[in-house]
Amino acid sequence: MSARPPWRRNLRDARFRMLAAALALALATAWVPPLPLTRTGVQVLAVVDITGSMNVRDYAAGGQPQSRLEAAKAALRHLLAGLPCGSRLALGLFTERRPFLLFAPVEVCENFAPLDGAIAALDWRMAWEADSRITAGLDRAIAMAGEIGTDLVFVTDGQEAPPLRAGALPPFEGQPGAVRGLIVGAGGYGLSPIPKYNDRGRETGFYGETDVQQENRFGPPPADAESREGYNPRNAPFGAAAAGGTEHLSSVREPHLKALADRTGLAYAHLDGPASLDAPLRAVATRSPVAGRLDLRPYLGAAALVLVLAAFLAAPLRALTMRVPTPRKA
């Protein structure tokens, strides 16, 4: 007569306990709610330079030459796709001397399709004037980002048109570092020709040396003017020769952009492929808490799986490690 029913012993069996715990965990997945938690999102205003020099094709994608603007768009779309839900993006254009806000910050997951479409539709033909006074545009873009309470990503190649007066970076009127963000230098390091378009938007060649202003001749002449050929204080204060130079060619003006970044407390990054903005922005962006949810079920499931595997493997493992009494001897 067995006084103790077999299940008493079964209840004490470690493998039974493991399986029962796994069962409890598997059942718990149906009831455990996702854990609310705060994730770090970003709020960012992206301002894209759409002036003529951004049409320079010194990037390559898929074996084809790619313009700086297209490369910048690809990078922004990559950035958009990688932002955590709850992050918000605003988009602006830059040309002339000011940014133009296309739309106020929008949540990126719910509105992904229109945001992606709006970035894809950026075009140099949207430019309302042909100047490219980047320093002024950047300062106003920083002010705009401050107004709408976002960080700033300012994509430009740094080519000022007309050129800045030699060595004269105007003072920054805002407070450096009050708006955080990134100046993104677009373009290759070597000089490339700038495509020229006619009034119907068709490409008609490249800019030549005499097509663009090579030197800023507004305001007082530079200090070295006296030594120039044909200098006359009244009739030829900048010298008699036409200014020559390479302003009709374009490369990324990194020293200028880095100086601008220092002046305004932004960081600098070089645009180098679609994924090149993600890490630099993450490094400088203001972390703003966005509501996220952590699904606990994978953790419960993983624990249950470990328990089940342990229950199945207990016997073979023990047989391997220590020689339990074999059936033959019993």
Binding site: L102, F103, N111, A113, A118
Partner: peptide, 16 residues
Amino acid sequence: MLVLPMTDRHDAVRAA
């Protein structure tokens, strides 16, 4: 200037 392509996301339209 193309601000937003045709969309049913009214939040984005309001932001524009």
